[in-house]
Design a protein around this nucleic acid. Sequence first.
DNA 1: ATGTAC
Length: 476
Amino acid sequence: MRFEKIAPYTYRIPRQGKMRVDAVFFASEEILRDLEGENYASLQQLVNVATLPGIVEPALAMPDIHWGYGFPIGGVAAFDPEEGGVVSPGGVGFDINCGVRLLASHLTLEDLLPRQKELADTLYRLIPSGVGSERKDVRFSKKELKEILKEGAGWLIRRGFGYPEDLHFIESEGRLPWADPDKVSERAFERGAPQIGTLGSGNHFLEVQYVDQIYDEEAAEAFGLFPNQITVLIHTGSRGLGHQVCQDYVERFLKVDPRYGIELVDKQLAAAPIKSPEGQDYLQAMAAAANFAFANRQLIAHFVREAFEVVGFPPRDHGLRVLYDLAHNNAKFEEHGGKRVLVHRKGATRAFGPGHPEIPPEYRKVGQPVLVPGDMGRYSYVLSGTEKAMAVSFGSSCHGAGRKMSRHQAKRVARERNLIKELAERGILVRAATKATVDEEMPEAYKDVSVVVEAVQGAGIGKKVARLRPLIVVKG
DNA sequence: ATGTAC
């Protein structure tokens, strides 16, 4: 396919074939080489997205783009409900409202190191991880679960799992208000019920980290970050519940697409008009799953605090507060270019710039925090949203490093090695449900996230604030 | 991502 450079770190694929709009992606020279080689299929997926009805120009991809179900991961697409715009489960992803929550503490590296091992063991004990993991200690009835699906993180805070001020630092206050639990299948309920407060598997993780680099003093101060500070990053989503919602609605949409005259270049793009009953049902079920994910991260944060307390840091000492909780798999109505559009972000984050009313007042002057996990051996970044992102990417930025090796390939490379030991020798304590997950997730399996961040900053859709290095990693 | 093939 043909594309052209239109700005620093920014490329356009002009409308061609069945595309309704141009596509734009952000990349460095290094990322571009990958996109012209092994990662070419993900650009083709971006072109496919541009064929969907009612899409608002342009179809977008962040620098961490890679192949996904239907839409590429790292994709952003906005649809106009007044122009036949659609909603697509594949544009949100199977793990509805997957995201990351960053907790910032009062502790420093020196405070933590003497208790590092004990804390690693305690976190692993208090936070179930792995495929099919369940909580035995906190269970919710069907009626309570329905309330959680309507209310999100706030429901748990009311029950004492968290501090009231947590809510204020969660994207959308931890709740998508149009949720309707009655649009969620019985099977999804059954799968989700025991999974609130569990990490899951794959790239999901919990990390204890320290701040090793500050790039923007003003933003770091606004976010309350300082050198050598201990932070905790939680990455998880809506577990089996969101997965089941996605599956249910892909199947339902495929049946009705011919009736709505929606021609799909790929079945995995299954979509329904936003204004159709099916589209509305999915949006309400998706919001319910999103609220489940916000609640999941809330309950995990509660047990992170408890773990710090168990190893001898009372709340006054650990001071763990929610710096921000940011989703990277959802679809939300937002104002862009004077229009109300449905923005799908799949493996992409919201990155609203300075002054936006949806940013907590404490951060509003510098833009919203954008949390960008890397890999378990290197580092993660905190960025800030920008005005430019509002203008060119529907207020969106990247969500992570992106894989470099397939899971299979990584396992083959890691087979002869003892990654847990290697990482321990570098001061990173890993606690994981299975060796296979650690192998698949080894640092070399991922692109260096600093490459992605360089492209984001170069394109102007995010600004570096701080870098975080891992000390403890809990994996599925 | 995922009761990793209901």
